[in-house]
Amino acid sequence: MSRTSTEAACGLRRVALDGPTMGSRWTAVWHDDGAVDAMAVGRALAAAVGAVDDAMSTWKPESDLMRLNRAAVGPWHPVPASLAVVLDTALAIRRASAGAFDVGVGRLVADWGFGAHAGKADGLPAAPGGLDVATLEVDVAGARVRKLAPTALDLSGIAKGFGVDELARVLDAAGIENHLVGIDGEMRARGRKPDGAPWAIAVERPEPGVRAVHGVVALEDVAVATSGDYRHFRGEGADRISHTVDPRSSRPVRNAVASVTVLASTAMVADAAATAITVLGSDEGLAFAGRLGLDALVLLRRPDGTLEERAGGRFAAQADVAASAGEASSVGGVSSGASIRNHAT
């Protein structure tokens, strides 16, 4: 059940809703004149992200994704339209990133000790990591998928982003023209705040166990996602193992990338692209972002522990990132979780 809070802001009612989903919480913020039935909208939001979780979770044995993982090789299998769209997008980003982003790593993720099947991989087919170009066929129009080889699909690098897009879809359908929605480190903004300012979020400094602000990003009609090595990992120091697996080497990523923040038209694309850049590293990753017309900020960890920025698109001009903890802390709001802190007001 979602939680709802309202308060006056700029002569309008401020509505902030949130609820549990995908091991985290979804959030939604908007302002209105009181005519919107916030509780009804909240129920629709919860139902939307619940449907995504039911379709794409690796934690639910009877999710549509896990049934597809167990399905026979060869015939076409009907799937929810949403799952077909996400798989089709995932394959497109796999091609664009030359395999750096790959949803066929479910077995690898489990074998390296992460995710729902950490260390045991029960319920997953005994398939090699990564997707061969002929492993999966997706018919979006027909909402069906065909496997041409065994595969263990894991959508943890794209499903939350799609869930955020679904939150935005619900608010758009309700006629709420200006809003900010998010799940964990994925956010999507529509329009502006009542005072005409863009929505503002803070990019966290990528330090394990620390909640510190690196900079502030202004959002208007755009989605943002962050991937990093500082929230989900095993071990310590030089022995730390990242939860992000490089499908090309079948091993966890070991490079200087501490975090990647990507702006895109949809949270689904931003989510997947942030993971791809984490795997590719700064140079190849920024080139990949440039080919897709995406804006990206890469924070690299130097040997002495300090951070170095590499940026592409609008981030390169530093116009949209204020590397100022003071500015971020002056913007009140709701915490969104792992990688991005939502400072919406």
Results as ranks from 00 to 15, higher is better:
339 S>C: 07
96 A>Q: 09
260 V>D: 05
275 T>A: 07
246 D>H: 01
214 H>K: 05
80 P>V: 03
309 E>S: 14
128 P>M: 08
171 L>V: 10
61 P>L: 03
341 R>K: 08
220 E>A: 15
151 T>C: 15
64 D>V: 00
155 L>E: 02
4 T>E: 13
246 D>L: 02
323 A>T: 12
98 A>N: 14
281 G>I: 13
328 A>R: 00
275 T>N: 08
18 D>P: 05
241 I>E: 09
305 G>N: 10
146 R>K: 15
271 D>Q: 03
301 R>W: 09
193 K>A: 14
143 A>G: 02
99 G>Q: 10
164 V>W: 07
303 P>Y: 07
261 T>N: 05
191 G>S: 12
48 A>P: 05
64 D>W: 00
183 I>K: 06
252 P>E: 03
9 A>Q: 15
192 R>K: 11
173 A>G: 05
164 V>S: 07
264 A>D: 06
255 N>A: 03
78 P>E: 15
114 F>M: 04
209 G>N: 06
21 T>R: 12
48 A>Q: 05
167 L>V: 03
89 T>N: 09
183 I>G: 07
64 D>K: 02
314 R>S: 14
281 G>Q: 12
228 G>K: 03
247 P>K: 00
168 A>F: 06
306 T>F: 07
258 A>M: 02
248 R>Y: 00
68 L>W: 02
232 H>C: 09
93 I>V: 15
237 G>I: 11
321 V>G: 04
232 H>G: 03
223 A>T: 12
40 A>D: 13
2 S>V: 11
219 L>I: 05
255 N>R: 02
65 L>R: 08
168 A>T: 11
296 A>V: 06
72 A>K: 01
299 L>N: 08
230 Y>G: 04
320 D>Y: 10
322 A>Q: 13
127 A>C: 00
68 L>S: 03
334 V>K: 09
177 E>D: 14
15 V>K: 10
60 K>G: 10
262 V>N: 09
76 W>A: 14
278 T>C: 14
